[in-house]
């Protein structure tokens, strides 16, 4: 226990003359192989392309919002039950009798 500071000092000094660990000589080949087979060429989009795409998205969004707004305005007013029955009757039987029984 008396030599604790000495142990700590020697431990901290143990890397004083450390040499650099060398990378494997085959590593470069591995990296080149990875680069050639696994990585597609990075795709870079130009500023113009990005602006065009953003504008297109904005126009499509605005058109969608406008069509939803217009569609909301054109909803017919709700009808009560009697009016609905009369409408159905009109559709199936008509209001006027076109048949001629005087023969």
């Amino acid at each position: 226990m008396n030599n604790l500071p000495e142990h700590i000092k020697r431990t901290l000094q143990s890397i004083d003359r450390i040499e650099r660990a060398e990378a494997s000589p085959f590593l470069f080949g591995k990296i080149m192989d990875k680069l050639k087979h696994e990585l597609p060429e990075p795709i870079y989009y130009g500023t113009k392309m990005v602006v065009r795409f953003a504008l297109t998205v904005l126009v499509i969004g605005a058109l969608n919002a406008a069509s939803v707004h217009i569609a909301k305005k054109q909803v017919p007013p709700a009808l009560d039950e009697n009016t609905l029955i009369q409408k159905a009757a009109q559709e199936y039987f008509g209001l006027e009798d076109h048949f001629n029984y005087n023969y």
Partner: peptide
């Protein structure tokens, strides 16, 4: 065990890397 550590320092270096 770091491969670049001198032989006489191996034991202490192992403890240092642990810390």
């Amino acid at each position: 065990d770091h491969p670049g550590v001198l032989l006489e320092n191996k034991e202490h270096a192992r403890v240092l890397f642990f810390a």
